[in-house]
């Protein structure tokens, strides 16, 4: 039982950064922009969050910085793809290359200037990053441990996912925004401000992604700055968007499934003859299978928003 609780808790922690990345990417793809810069925006968020946390020793400021850094990356992406109508794939990949590099670059620079030649988060912020036990609920045996004793990122991520689901499916704005993703020309004709909502969604999405990056730098890496701390999670997040069929609520349990994939290799008994690489491959393999299966069944409701990848030029509608 203890083992099982430990397993679930570890899976949730492994799932959290992916959840953020996925939610951010859903925001992007819902307005018709496939942003392959998730890895880059996460790295930028990781770097900004960690460095601000390191300097100010304040978790709130660190989270704001992470959000802002991700949002700046996304703003760059939005300017190039929405306003200047550059190719989305190319800009996204560039953002990934740029974001990862600038994070490592700044990290290298900060380390070279520090006295100890390493960066470790100070005390206040480290304790603020610890598990928060929700009063009463956290005391329930087993369930309390599995559901209500996590660090702040986990709760925040779930809250963002639920808010996002409400936004997309219960508000008029959300409906409009989804319309943009499916057919920007029609949305424009209906009086929806296409460019404005594209910018808003992409930038907020980038910010959320940035917070996911901060998680990897501050929690996964144990409070010490390491290069490449995001380490490919951004790409798993892109995969999860497909697995979650572009729906925020699906992203919650989907990220848990992917979290389990990520930690499975540490929990499977040694005598099970499955190579480690297979576990690491699972998120991508499963996603590929889901992608093909959905296309065979031609399920429109589980498909990518129709205008994804195509920039919208008003005079060509």
């Amino acid at each position: 039982m203890d083992m099982l609780i430990k397993f679930v808790v570890a899976a949730v922690v492994a799932a959290t950064p992916i959840l953020y990345g996925t939610l951010g990417e859903i925001m992007n793809e819902r307005v018709g922009h496939i942003n392959l810069g998730v890895e880059g925006m996460m790295s930028m968020g990781a770097c900004a969050g960690f460095m601000v946390g390191y300097i100010t020793d304040n978790l709130f400021l660190a989270l704001v910085a992470a959000f802002a850094a991700g949002a700046v990356g996304a703003l760059l992406y939005a300017f190039l793809t929405v306003t200047l109508m550059a190719n989305q794939n190319v800009v996204g990949l560039t953002l990934t290359i740029f974001g990862v590099a600038i994070a490592n670059f700044v990290g290298f620079y900060m380390i070279s200037r520090s006295a100890t030649k390493s960066l470790k988060l100070p005390e206040n912020i480290t304790s603020a990053l610890g598990s928060i036990k929700i009063p009463l609920l956290g005391d329930i045996p087993v369930l309390g441990q599995v559901l209500f004793q996590y660090n702040i990122f986990v709760y925040l991520g779930v809250i963002i996912a639920i808010l996002m689901a409400v936004y997309f499916y219960k508000t008029k704005t959300g409906l409009n925004v989804r319309a943009i993703g499916e057919n920007p020309g029609a949305a424009d004709a209906a009086g929806i401000r296409v460019t404005k909502w594209k910018y808003i969604n992409i930038v907020i999405g980038g910010g959320i992604t940035g917070i996911g990056g901060a998680f990897t730098a501050m929690i996964t890496a144990g409070g010490v700055w390491i290069s490449d701390c995001v380490g490919g999670l951004g790409w798993i997040a892109v995969a999860l968007v497909i697995f979650a069929s572009w729906k925020p609520v699906n992203a919650i349990w989907g990220s848990l499934v992917f979290g389990i994939f990520r930690i499975l290799k540490y929990y499977v008994p040694k005598n099970v003859p499955v190579p480690i690489a297979i576990y690491d491959m699972l998120p991508f393999l499963v996603t590929a299978i889901v992608l093909v299966a959905n296309s065979i069944k031609q399920r429109k409701d589980n498909a990518q928003p129709a205008s994804c990848g195509i920039n919208y030029f008003r005079e060509e509608r």
């Binding site: 790409w235 892109v238 995969a239 497909i242 491959m281 998120p283 991508f284 996603t287 992608l291 093909v292």
Partner: peptide
Amino acid sequence: LFTLMLNYI
């Protein structure tokens, strides 16, 4: 999306 997944596989 499919070619992207195949990279990691």
